[in-house]
Nucleic acid binder design. Structure first.
Lengths: 237, 237
DNA sequence: AGGCGTCTGTGCGCTAGACCACATATATGA
DNA sequence: TCATATATGTGGTCTAGCGCACAGACGCCT
């Protein structure tokens, strides 16, 4: 992670952008722009957090790694959210890991500043709690989807959720990493991705995935994607 | 649901019990004791909530039902929690259903009272948010467990979580209902439960499950149970 | 140009669990 | 005591996805 400067351009995180003028002005001096690289660990299982992060064009995955090394994603955060909810929810640490899934920028804020502002009970608190509820929906739907749907459907869901949170049509992501996120084997992803490629929905070469036909993905995906998207729009739109 | 009276005995919900004297005194007049029957729906998908519920000796499951009727549980709430977090998180409605999984009592509180007290920012807010974080852990672990573990392990996890939240060693619950909770087929539960019965861990007849040897269940269960339990103890203990 | 490391493709056997079709057992109420 | 609905047991077939073992294929570095 590299610290860049104080942000001066228009804010690209939806939570911050939704703040009223005065609250944003109060927080602005406490925001620093940082840059995440692919695969960087934002926090570890049980680790202590000094900052919260508001991604702008980066994506951060929340995942859990079992004792035997197997892992699975429970949710992901982009420019519509915040990484480090334990800091305002009161737990201090979270029982999961946060890993950068798509390189890019974020704004960070010191824990103390966040907590003080949260305690004021204004719009900031309101937005953070609504985001947390949307995140709960996402995690819930991941639980259901893991139980009931095929790898191909889950891959579509994952691609669409990522695509929604990043500007470009190209995702930098190997099948190996996707397999870790979805909690399946790499070969399973190869087969599912192969089918999507054959249908013309996506194209990929060595870690570069292109969304060619978003509609095709939406036709294949299970209802879980829509549920999550609708809830995010309802709560944060 | 039947409304009984105003509670006068010692409070049996851990969240309420953790309140300081003055806050509890302020809330007491707004609490009504109610009785839930097995299978009762506390709230529906997208439904509006007039009350939150603090279970005393009942257990309420949060589950999601797909368009095709298949369902899966994302978490469960007993005397250590509250049903209806959307009311203080700000969403108003939740994209899931809440169903009584074990008949028993709860204390209910009008939404308006809850929200006013929450806005004061005292210990009540603190407790509700910490509980919500513990719930997030539970849902997350359900997601991971659904992906990576066997039906038998998940059944153990479910039995242990339920056993922790109810006084008795006997659970009133058919295999059919457990199958809906776990998002698996009824026959799958029959087989898994049969193995646990053979090993002497449990005994059951027509909807009455007895925990005979808790240790055996803990030996069989996956790590997911421990993670959830530890996090509840840490955050609410 | 060559070599090595990292991705991706494929095939094969195996297993858990789904789906289907009944058989049996227990409770409840007429 | 009998009828009926509900709960549980079991067996057979089918499939998705795992584990394993390689075989290309592409990218980067020297």
């Amino acid at each position: 992670m590299t610290v860049i400067a104080r942000p001066n351009e228009p804010v690209e995180n939806r939570l911050l952008a939704a703040l009223p003028e005065d609250e944003y002005a109060r927080l602005l001096p406490s925001l620093q722009q940082v840059s995440f690289s692919l695969g960087e660990v934002v926090y570890e299982f049980g680790g202590h957090l000094d900052y919260v992060f508001f991604p702008t064009n980066s994506i951060v995955s929340l995942l859990y790694t079992m004792e035997n090394g197997a892992s699975a994603e429970m949710g992901l955060t982009g420019n519509d959210g915040v990484v480090g909810i334990a800091l305002f929810m009161g737990g201090g640490t979270m029982p999961n890991r946060a890993v950068v899934q798509s390189a890019g920028g974020a704004l960070r804020m010191k824990a103390k500043v966040l907590q003080d502002e949260f305690a004021r009970g204004g719009k900031f608190q309101y937005l953070l709690l609504r985001y947390t509820q949307a995140l709960i929906t996402q995690i819930s739907q991941t639980a259901v989807c893991n139980r009931l749907h095929s790898v191909e459907q889950q891959l579509c869901r994952w691609l669409l959720l990522s695509h929604d949170r990043v500007k470009a049509d190209e995702l930098i992501m190997t099948q190996e990493l996707i397999a870790d996120m979805l909690g399946v084997r790499r070969e399973g992803v190869t087969v599912a991705a192969g089918r999507l490629q054959d249908s013309g929905a996506i194209g990929y070469v060595r870690g570069h995935i292109k969304i060619l036909d978003r509609q095709k993905l939406e036709d294949t995906v299970c209802e879980c994607y829509r549920v999550v998207k609708d809830e995010f729009d309802r709560l944060l739109g």
